[in-house]
């Protein structure tokens, strides 16, 4: 698989990052990770991932803000963003979608469901 899809995963929880990375790598994706919002913005610009998984509560710049900035930037506007957050209230979901995310997955989630969402988005 020389043509692996590249996914940027931004989350400040090391364990969550480790588990999702292992899981998605086992499904044939290439994963790059960011610890905070600012790093996520930098990597999105420099690495041009095919998809971005964004946590909300992150240091420096929160996920909603990261998403808004990605959508405002010509270079990163077209990269689909999926929010991945333990903030389960409907207002948070609305906020994420309003910021331009294509989907909002509430933690904890079934990894298979995450994979379904990713492959659906990358196929379309």
């Amino acid at each position: 698989m020389a043509d692996k899809k590249k996914i940027l995963l931004a989350d400040d929880e090391e364990d969550i990052k480790a588990v999702i990375t292992l899981f998605l790598e086992s499904k044939g994706y290439q994963i790059i990770t960011a610890f905070d919002g600012l790093a996520a913005l930098d990597l999105a610009r420099s690495e041009h991932p095919d998809l971005i998984l964004l946590d909300v509560m992150m240091p420096v710049v929160n996920g909603f803000e990261v998403c808004t900035r990605l959508k405002a930037d010509e270079e990163t506007r077209d990269i689909p963003v999926v929010m991945l957050s333990a903030m389960a209230q409907s207002e948070s979901v609305d906020k994420g979608l309003a910021a331009g995310a294509v989907d909002y997955i509430v933690k904890p989630f079934d990894p298979s469901r995450l994979e379904e969402v990713i492959s659906r988005i990358l196929k379309s």
Binding site: A18, V19, F23, S26, A86, K107, F109, D110
Partner: peptide, 23 residues
């Protein structure tokens, strides 16, 4: 909301790890 967030976070790692181990 915060309690929910703080309980969901470790559960996310647990759920992911269990999935990986059982798969």
């Amino acid at each position: 909301a915060m309690v929910s967030h703080e309980l969901r976070t470790p559960l996310t790692s647990i759920k992911g790890a269990v999935h990986l181990l059982t798969s």
